[in-house]
Design a binder for these strands. Structure first.
Lengths: 359, 359
DNA sequence: CTGTTAGCGCCTTCAG
DNA sequence: CTGAAGGCGCTAACAG
């Protein structure tokens, strides 16, 4: 019981396939009589167009690909959510491909996308991956995210990690901290590197010594890094973690050592994932509108794809998003608290339409 | 600058397109000489096969579709992660489509998948959506998730929500609670309904009165529900929330009222999303292996797709996953604590290979 | 307005 | 072992 094709519909309604295509795609004019007969045949045959065939003939898949290095944690889930939202708004499908740790695998994934998507969003926190995107993709439109965009005029959305880190340090300095340590992200990760550099320069500018512990963006690594430092003679009075998950780990390590966060040690994270607000003490962090960034990337990809048609050449080059400092409980010791910090859930509920969620 | 087709490669290497296809797909035998020439042409032309065309001719897309009602929160991100993992293991692509609140929209999404995917996983917490999947999909293999699977022999993965709720109540009773309230999920959501029924029956069996507050699975609704109850003359001494996010809201409401959780009021959630372990007090909850469930659904879909080929008829009917109670701090008052509850991050890090994550 | 025809890019019998 | 030819299901000229 093969499913019906356009030819079956044509036969059953006694018209040509072209006509069926016409009434279904509704561009050109057709008589009411024909429209009726075709629609009826479609109904009885339960005909559903084959989008694969359609794509081949139209040279357009209405599908966009997303290449991710990983799929863990709220960062990516937020990113995909934003992209999905934008994709739906433009009637596009989204095909996601993750776990491309090494460049080789990412290259493979990109190749296998050819003929399946109209364009690609590539998240490449590693240098080589970005390079690959340049070469291997061929004529497929690509928007890079969080890549090393310096010097290229390739469309790209990036977060100003350096600036974010500076803001973190500045905030800690303002609130009286002096021994500010940093738990960094994985070596070779462009974002982690930038955040570290931003931290280092800000400290240097303040004439203070920097102290950097390794980490890998996981909560566990944040915990261990801080636990190590607490065992030393002169522990820091503040920790700037390269992302929120590590900041959460840092807070736990502090609490477990019998110390108080923020009174004894302040903690600042990065990203402002949803969890940051719920944890106690709520995390001071650098908010980046993750979902918004994803949506923006997708929109840029779409204009990039449409560019040859519209004739308008799309704005090229990197687009840089500046994170904003969100001060919560984890960094403000009592003597510095100006206003009450409410623990009531704020308007952070992202279900803007107020509709019920799934479990 | 059109990208090269198989014909270009054939021409450049002086062989037929059939031969190019042969060396590239490597099924049949070819002379070394030819293989060399073809591969060289592929190289210089930077030829990448067009998977769309390939799909059309092979009647196989190697792509699976996932239809979700929503994309908020950790529940879905975990689910997708599990599916993605399984998909990669089988060399399949994943196309996700979300925000199908009403059945109409979901139906549309399913139709637009025809010719684009080899099968579908449909998450339908609403009855009608499940019904739609039955009819509209035609001959496309479908695996339902969390749907009303009773009575059908359609492949389906479901969580035993009723049982989970019973476990929650049993646990609270065992630890001495008597005035146990329930914050339910959205009306009409099958899972929310089942959890509520499980709660109701368990309380009834214990000869206690039930108390049900409305909610919609969001943290805010959990907060408000509990805040309402705390304002009454005889507030509960325990709250069973239909999911973890509402449980988090419940805890915040309790703390904000100046009460202690769990000493004054115990809280139990459902799902065990990653956040449940990090929040303070850590949430007692009903753990369901979300990612595992997603992976399982995907695997079942694959066997379903391969069924006609292998001849083996796939196991049909629902597959029910029983949640397991995870006792943490939010439900165990001091006088009931048997063993120390460590706040150290456990082995919950899901990065099993220990590789670095992205921010 | 409608039908005929030629592809979209690839795989796959079927002869040679 | 290799080439030629016929589709896969649909759209898009081009005639009528």
């Amino acid at each position: 019981m093969r499913s019906a094709t356009i030819r079956d519909v044509a036969k059953r309604s006694g018209v040509s396939v072209a006509s069926v295509s016409r009434v279904l795609n509704g561009a050109e004019a057709v008589t009411e009589a024909m429209r009726g007969r075709v629609l009826e045949a479609v109904e009885t045959l339960r005909y559903v167009p084959h989008s694969g065939a359609r794509s081949l003939s139209m040279r357009r898949t209405d599908t966009l690909g997303v290449i991710l290095p990983d799929l863990f944690g709220e960062y990516f889930s937020e990113l995909i959510r934003g992209m999905d939202l934008a994709a739906r708004a433009h009637g596009k499908h989204l095909i996601v491909s993750s776990s491309h740790d090494d460049a080789e695998e990412a290259a493979m994934a990109m190749r296998s996308m050819r003929g399946r998507v109209d364009g690609l969003i590539v998240l490449s926190p590693h240098l080589d991956a970005a390079k690959l995107a340049e070469g291997l993709v061929g004529s497929l439109p690509v928007v890079l995210m969080n890549a090393a965009a310096v010097g290229t005029d390739r469309p790209c959305i990036t977060i100003d990690n350096h600036d974010g880190a500076s803001q973190a340090v500045a905030h800690l300095l303002e609130t009286g901290r002096r021994r500010i340590a940093h738990v960094r992200g994985p070596v070779g990760n462009l974002e982690a590197d930038d955040r570290m550099r931003g931290y280092g320069q800000a400290l240097e500018a303040a004439g203070l010594e920097s102290r950097i512990e390794p980490g890998d963006f996981t909560q566990g690594s944040g915990y261990r890094a801080v636990a190590r430092m607490l065992a030393e003679v002169s522990p820091p009075d503040a920790v700037f973690a390269a992302n929120d998950m590590m900041a959460v780990g840092a807070v736990l390590a502090i609490q477990e050592a019998g110390l108080n966060c923020p009174d004894d040690i302040a903690v600042v994270g990065f990203d402002d994932v949803p969890i940051a607000e719920v944890v106690r003490p709520a995390l001071t962090t650098l908010k980046v509108d993750i979902a918004g960034t994803g949506a923006r990337a997708l929109e840029r990809l779409i204009t990039l794809i449409q560019a040859p048609a519209t004739g308008a050449l799309p704005e090229s080059g990197p687009e840089i998003v500046r994170p904003t400092l969100v001060v919560r409980q984890s960094s403000v010791a009592l003597q510095h608290q100006s206003k009450t910090v409410s623990s009531r859930p704020s308007g952070r509920d992202r279900n803007l339409r107020g509709e019920p969620h799934h479990a």
